[in-house]
Design a protein around this nucleic acid. Structure first.
Length: 266
DNA sequence: TCACAGGCTAGAG
DNA sequence: CTCTAGCCTGTG
């Protein structure tokens, strides 16, 4: 499946912190695992070659890569605001999209991410998937993310996987997910505020993780997760307050550019 | 040795 | 309600 896409920079997306199972093989080749599938993206001139059929593209990947969202509109809004730091952040992060990832994978991944660093988060998630052992057909050595009810909860007693104190939260969320199979679809039907409240009921999910799940797992692009980096950046560049009113409804996308700039330009 | 990493829980005040 | 010690663990 070969296609030309605007506002799509696969290397920047891979390094944007929203996904933990993307691998930059080289500047023209990225591989990823999502929705139980293994996908490779290769840059060929000004086009992108995806290792899937057109049918699969339509049914899975077009939504996953957030093609329905108009990033030209976002760009215009940013340019209209005419604020130097945001413009600089946008230039550096241009091509980043907010992926529409699998909700369960996002819930679990961002519980693991708390008070943690990217290196260990990635290693832990990879190790977890490998230990769960759900191999992807046709791709030996590649493992999909385990859904509720698909794993032995004793896996969280294994300290070598690096869950740390989050192991107990993970065991509980897998238990809850298996006991409440309707929860995920209910979350998807809720608006941002209601979904956030429901997520906050779960042990191990606080305000920051809940907002990450809303933004990356439910595509509520008004969600604005505030972690230590964003907190610092807000104090540094927006001491008088971030213009949430101007970016009403899309603040989460703006946050991605600011976050990416903060991590890649310091 | 010590602070910190894309925070949260539980308990105190 | 707000505040914060303690938490697993790898890294610099």
């Amino acid at each position: 499946m070969r296609i030309k896409l605007d506002h799509f920079d696969m290397v920047r997306i891979a390094k944007s912190g929203q996904c933990f199972r993307w691998v930059v093989e080289d500047k023209d080749l990225v591989s990823l695992i999502a929705f139980g599938k293994y996908l490779r993206i290769r840059k060929v001139g000004d086009e992108l070659d995806f290792s899937c059929t057109g049918e699969e593209w339509e049914s899975i990947w077009a939504d996953y890569f957030d093609l329905p969202t108009d990033y030209n509109e976002i760009e215009h809004k940013i340019r209209d605001y005419r604020e130097p730091h945001l413009l600089e952040a946008f230039e550096l992060g241009q091509g980043i999209r907010i992926l529409q990832q699998d909700l369960w994978e996002i819930i679990v991944s961002f519980i693991i991410s708390q008070n943690n660093n990217i290196t260990r988060i990635t290693r832990t998630i990879d190790g977890f998937c490998e230990r769960a052992g759900l191999e992807i057909e046709g791709h030996p050595g590649k493992y999909r993310f385990p859904n509720p009810g698909e794993i032995d909860l004793d896996i969280f007693a294994d300290r070598t996987l690096g869950f740390g104190y989050r192991a107990d939260y993970l065991r509980k969320i897998y238990e809850f997910g298996a006991d409440n199979p309707e929860w995920l679809s209910e979350l998807k039907a809720m608006d941002y505020k209601a979904a956030r409240e429901s997520l906050l009921q779960r042990t191990g999910i606080g305000p920051k993780v809940a907002d990450c799940i809303c933004l990356f797992g439910l595509h509520h692009i008004e969600a604005f997760p505030i972690d230590t980096h964003v907190k610092q950046l807000l104090e540094k560049y927006y001491a008088e307050g971030f213009p949430f009113e101007f970016f009403d409804g899309v603040a989460g996308i703006i946050q991605q550019y600011l976050f990416y700039y903060e991590l890649n330009n310091n």
